[in-house]
Design a protein around this nucleic acid. Sequence first.
RNA 1: GCCCCGGUAGCUCAGUUGGACAGAGCGGCGGUUUCCUAAACCGUAGGUCACAGGUUCGAGUCCUGUCCGGGGCGCCA
Length: 555
Amino acid sequence: MIKHEIEALILGSVRAAQHAGELPPLPVPEAPIERPQRPDHGDYASSLPLRMARAARMSPLEIANAIASQARSLAESTVVAQVEVSPPGFINIHLSPVWLALQVDTIIQEGASFGSMNLGEGRSLQVEFVSANPVGPIHIGNGRGLALGDTLARVLSAAGYEVQREYLVNDAGTQTETFAATLYARYQQLFGRDAPVPEGGYPGEYMIDLARRLKEERGDSLLRPEEEAYPQEVHDLGIQMILDGIRADLESIGVRYDNWFSERSLYAGGTYEKAMTVLRERGFVAQKEGATWFVSTAVGEEKENVLVRSNGAPTYFASDIAYHYDKFVLRGFERVIDVSGADHQGHVPRMKAAASALGIDPSRLAIIVYQLGTLKRGNEVVGLGKRTGEFITLREVTDEVGADAARYNFVSRSADSHMEFDLDLAKRQSAENPVYYVQYAHARIAGILIQAGERIIDYSSGDVSLLTHEAELALIRKMLRLPELVESMALSLEPHALPYYALELATAFHDFYEKCRVLSDDEALSKARLKLVSAAKITLARALDLMGMTAPERM
RNA sequence: GCCCCGGUAGCUCAGUUGGACAGAGCGGCGGUUUCCUAAACCGUAGGUCACAGGUUCGAGUCCUGUCCGGGGCGCCA
């Protein structure tokens, strides 16, 4: 990656200057290079001189000159065109236009793998996201987690990790019991019984639909005497129906999991007992007030938390500890990323503490918490988070604005932002939407390539060194940023830069398209530009694919 | 009361581990089409970066406090 080469060049130049006695032998600060905002500041810039000035007891300009002159002699002139010093002490590096043009061939050669790298070195990594309780359809709040988790998985996979997407099915907790009780109440109502929806149950309409389906499929066979609780079958069938619905919801936004993990299996398979035993043996468990507690002060947690309730039922926390024991110890993932909504925020520190208590380095566990925000439709504003009777389902959104627009909008906000998703806006704007702007660039390119195919132009021999127009070089520069972006997203676990990048790439293409005609009488130039355009197509398609979006051939 | 997150253009949001004149999309205003898709392009207006201090060569970015909003706070998940 060119960025790393320039980084190495700057660091090498600092070292050379130190060897030559032009700079004192001080440690070099982090982050040697950055991307300047203004194009006339070059492709890369370094502010090291400014940051080293104090310790070196030299003026920033002196330092900059020392480093720059070393860089000029170290740099390959075919790659770096110019190294200049700019007050008050920046070093600006301009890449050679010829080198830039040649990268078009490289991109075409890499094809669909352009942007991939081996940062992860094939290490196993799991992304678990959404894992909504199987008590209702996927709602809009989950949609954000879906887009975030799936994009993260795609980015990390591109960065060289062996990625698995997992959905934890909470089929063992209190909530599914409440769900089953609600379902059974609705079911009984269909047979004329006066069975109220239980306290804290699920008042949504969909529960009545589920009950109807239950009646259609099983008749009255699930009815029990008035005073009795629901039969296990109601619980299991209900969850099964919900899960089928969830799978279909996920399909509507193009998310597919590699593994569906049953919480119940933690108990049936003995994992839960094993994890608790480990905690106990390591001295993190105590009995108090009739319950079993996780004593976490030893691993830096301030509060203690209940593992097993006084009624003998394990808490979600205990279950999650067993679950992570399974992930790290039994299944051996080197890294695990959990994506969850801000309503789980309080769960983060104690889960980290629990990992430590299990002897797992907590840095192997990343928990990404996204803020919930609101959804706006007309004048109605709905919270994205709360479990309420009335909510907007993911399906409503994907039906209205489409999977691509939904994903683009979800991914384009940082996880920390309290996003406002304006449904009407997303629909109304659809023609002027950035989503279509980006996809249109891809379709435009496809159109050009189709015409080239009809004219039977073979551009494989095109000479990319003919690409010297400023708009051509700007487009190439933008394409070369993709690998850097994948790398930084894989490190920061923040994929929201992707939509912005796709937009900039599309802008660079549209600008080129206006200024440079691809298919013209100049045959050599046409071939060169066909190469450029097909490289741009590769890059755009990759950017879209990383977001799980389609790259249409025509619009 | 304590903890987490946010407050940047009319709206929705970026701002690359402190760097050069604070950006984008949408919306507003004004233009561009005999020519590979006008779902495009060009121009223009719009800012006390919530507020007050502090740290330093330099702060939207780091620290302290205040205000406003969202979320959470030992036997829900």
